[in-house]
């Protein structure tokens, strides 16, 4: 077991309303080593909050989050995050961006260059070493962000809708490449998305959150072989099941 969330709740205080808004309520979740877990749910269900708390940017109001049995107290490179928007530093080249995290860790220059070169190859961006982020497409930027985070060799990779801002085709391709990468390199991944299809394509386990307060409505193990065909009988059944559950959790007429 890599990660454990126990009775995690998050309340945001809203001054205008004069009371707290419960974003997450009593989340219990364990993630095993090398597991690929997707969290899905409608916007405002607290899936990003959960990820931010695991990353250490925010503290849970109640409950505890543990990585390798150690309480999380703040951000750390062992919990690498890939953000939705581009977080690359615009004044650094692709290679410098990947090396930046390693430099912060105090990794010597020659080793840094080796590692950066290796991860550039892994994400298929060899030859783009000296390009600046603004010269890359949205998909390439996210690949650099993934390479940068992987270079830190995190115990768990937290991905917050990493392909959410990309077009459908690029997104499918990157999903596929991420899957390959995960299969080859054995990583533990927690992936937040709002796309049922993306979750089914990728995950070992899908966790569906309800909307305000966010609770785990469904924890679904997927044992289908990969690569998965979105139109096979089993997958269509799961899609229908998830869609029905999604409808249950936010009935029409409720503010979203």
């Amino acid at each position: 077991m890599v990660l454990e969330c126990r009775n995690v709740s998050k309340v945001y205080v809203n001054r205008k309303l004069g009371h707290g808004v419960v974003a997450l309520n009593d989340i219990n979740l364990t993630i095993a080593k090398n597991e690929f877990v997707c969290i899905i749910g409608p916007s405002g269900c607290g899936k990003s909050s959960l990820l931010h708390m695991i990353a250490g940017f925010e503290r849970p109001t109640r409950g505890s989050i543990r990585l390798h049995n150690e309480e999380i107290s703040g951000p750390s490179p062992e919990r690498g995050v890939v953000f939705q928007e581009s977080s690359l530093l615009p004044w650094k080249s692709v290679r410098e961006n990947i090396e930046f995290g390693l430099a912060i860790q105090g990794c010597p220059r020659s080793e840094r260059q080796d590692i950066a070169g290796r991860y550039l190859n892994i994400v298929g961006l060899q030859g783009f070493d000296h390009a600046r982020p603004h010269e890359l497409s949205g998909g390439m930027k996210q690949k650099v962000a993934i390479a940068r985070t992987l270079a830190l060799d995190p115990a768990i990779l937290l991905m917050d809708e990493p392909f959410g801002a990309l077009d459908e085709q690029t997104r499918k391709r990157l999903d596929f490449e991420l899957l390959e990468l995960w299969q080859q390199r054995q990583k533990t991944i927690l992936f937040v998305t709002h796309s049922i299809e993306e979750a089914i394509l990728l995950a070992d386990r899908i966790i569906l959150l309800t909307v305000r307060p966010g609770r785990i409505q469904l924890d679904l193990e997927l044992s289908l072989p990969r690569p998965r065909n979105l139109f096979s009988k089993e997958v269509v059944e799961i899609r229908q099941q998830l869609l029905a559950e999604l409808m249950l959790c936010c009935p029409p007429g409720q503010p979203v």
């Binding site: 919990r79 912060i104 830190l152």
Partner: peptide, 16 residues
């Protein structure tokens, strides 16, 4: 703020 967030994730101190 995302630049600062990602630097914190990479383990940067306030000084860095």
């Amino acid at each position: 703020p995302i630049y600062i967030k990602s630097a914190r994730m990479m383990g940067a101190t306030r000084f860095l």
